[in-house]
Design a protein around this nucleic acid. Sequence first.
DNA 1: ATTCTGACAGCAA
DNA 2: TTTGCTGCCAGAA
Length: 110
Amino acid sequence: MDNRNFFERVYEVALLIPHGRVTSYGAIARYLGTARSARMVGWAMNKCHTPGKFIPAHRVVNRNGLLTGKLHFGNSTTMQQLLENEGAVIENDRIINFNQVFWDPSIEIG
DNA sequence: ATTCTGACAGCAA
DNA sequence: TTTGCTGCCAGAA
C-alpha cells in the first residue's frame, strides 16, 4: 500500500461529492475504513492545494456542519460563499440545511 | 526512534 | 446545554 493511497482515497471521495452536497470528515473516514482517522481526512484537505487537481474541500465540513476549515481557504468567507453558491444555507459559519445537503459516501456509494 | 501536531469525533463534567 | 478533555490515525520535525 502506498502512503499516498490514503490521501488519494480522500481526494477521490471528495471528488465524488455531488454538486450542492456536503459531507463530513468522519463520513469519509468511515467510507475509507478508518473511522477514527477523521482528522487525517481534514489534514489531507490541507494538502489538497496540489495544483492540477481540484478538490472540493469546501464540501467537507465537520459532523456539526460547521465550516471549521474556512480559515484555510485564504479568506474566511470563501468557503461559505462557495457552499451558498451551490445551494447550501449557511448562517454563522454553520450549514443550516446540513441534513438536507448532507451526502454520506458509505451510503450513496457503498 | 521519539515527539508533536492536526480543516475530527465521542464522552465526561 | 455548553465547554473541555481524551482517543484515534498518519505524517512531519
